[in-house]
Amino acid sequence: MKITGYRTLTTVQEWGRPVGDANGTFTDGITSVSIIQVETDEGITGTGFGSHVQVEAIFAAIEGEDPRSVTALYDRMLRRTFKAGHGGAVFSTIGAFDTALWDIKAKAVGEPLWRLLGGRDRVVPAYASGLDIGLNDDELVAVYQNYADHGLLAAKLKGGLDVERDRQRLTLVQDVLRQAGGGQRPGLMLDANESWNRKQAVRHISELERTLDLVWVEEPVRRWDVDGLATVGRGIRASVATGENLTGLEQFRPLLVAGAVDIVQASASCGVTHFLRVAATAHAHDLPVSPIGNVSVALTHAATSIPNHLVTELQDLQPPVGVTVDRRIEHGALVLGDSAGIGVQVDENVISTRGHQPNTQQTDGPHVRPPRAGLRLLATSDGHQS
């Protein structure tokens, strides 16, 4: 079998509500989803989700190769970007190709990826993650009630701009989940999306912990700030989580060595091979791992095969437009199906006939860091004032 070509597609996630974090909000609730499909001479096509940046240059590293040599081809792609580096969106492109190759490998033997990777249990624990900072109280309650109706009793909220507002929102969601769980204490997490400096993080979380029990705080300071993350970890009771925006084991290693992270995360867009390597590295430090991302189906498969999976992020309950996934949500968990590969089908007709596309020219939103992030003196509702 040989790799003969690739195709790129872009669809959208229709959230039906504003989505965002401390850095900004997409008010129309429409976000883009990039897809790469890898073709072979035996008619098997693999699907991956991630960036299209430098797609032609990276494909050159695997063209004509046997797609079943996945991990070797992953390293070939990394080497192809050696001089300029594989950070940022380039790493996501490599991840999309990598996921597509794993999809092909599993399809070639007629097995779901979770089975090929050695998983025993197709049921993967999940938590709700609503990208919810732009919602009012009623909207927030409705969104998390919907998650609770699917059995999800743990939730991660976006916050970091106003400690009193964060307390109020966390308490509302806590009440929803506690009632749904028959009085059971729910799991609550807060994601600050790198919006604080280290002392702000300690003050903010310590204040919340006077009345709330937080499982973890995510990206309280910059993703690469080893000393800062360690300082926050020593100053609060909650665990510190980070990793979704790190690109390569070389960025994880200093955090692990310094004891600066408690929950090791990996982004779905970075691919299966990266996730497996991160999980093995974290396991060597007796740390749990948690996959992050909206279209995280491939990492859900991979999570079944590792010894230190904690819980997987579940964002929108519905897949992107034109995408179907052989997976169901049941009793607060993701239950994988028996379809060969990662269980994803892409309908290009649905994607092409859908009327609207995301606004890729937006100059603000969650993807743009505010100029005063980490420098705010007073609480702010929009992230752009101090």
Results as ranks from 00 to 15, higher is better:
356 H>M: 13
369 R>N: 12
307 P>Q: 08
258 A>I: 08
272 V>K: 01
287 L>V: 01
244 E>K: 00
319 P>C: 11
291 P>Y: 00
345 Q>R: 12
264 V>P: 05
261 V>L: 07
335 V>K: 07
278 V>R: 05
294 N>T: 03
336 L>S: 07
248 G>A: 11
247 T>I: 11
360 T>I: 10
319 P>W: 08
371 P>L: 13
236 I>K: 01
306 I>P: 05
310 L>I: 00
314 L>V: 11
341 G>E: 06
298 A>Y: 05
356 H>D: 12
254 P>I: 03
305 S>N: 08
305 S>E: 08
371 P>A: 14
257 V>Y: 11
252 F>H: 04
299 L>I: 09
304 T>Q: 12
278 V>M: 10
320 P>L: 04
351 I>S: 00
296 S>M: 00
246 L>S: 08
279 A>L: 13
287 L>W: 01
352 S>V: 02
255 L>P: 03
310 L>S: 13
336 L>I: 00
358 P>Y: 06
363 T>P: 01
368 V>Q: 13
319 P>V: 08
290 S>L: 03
321 V>P: 00
358 P>S: 15
368 V>I: 15
332 G>W: 00
341 G>D: 07
352 S>A: 13
235 G>Y: 07
362 Q>G: 03
244 E>T: 03
355 G>K: 10
330 E>M: 04
367 H>C: 10
363 T>Y: 08
235 G>P: 01
357 Q>G: 14
313 E>Q: 15
309 H>A: 10
278 V>A: 12
336 L>Q: 02
242 T>F: 05
238 A>T: 09
273 T>V: 02
316 D>N: 15
323 V>P: 02
323 V>C: 06
322 G>I: 06
326 D>S: 13
344 V>L: 03
309 H>I: 01
275 F>E: 00
300 T>Y: 02
342 I>V: 15
278 V>T: 07
243 G>T: 10
321 V>E: 06
267 S>C: 14
250 E>V: 08
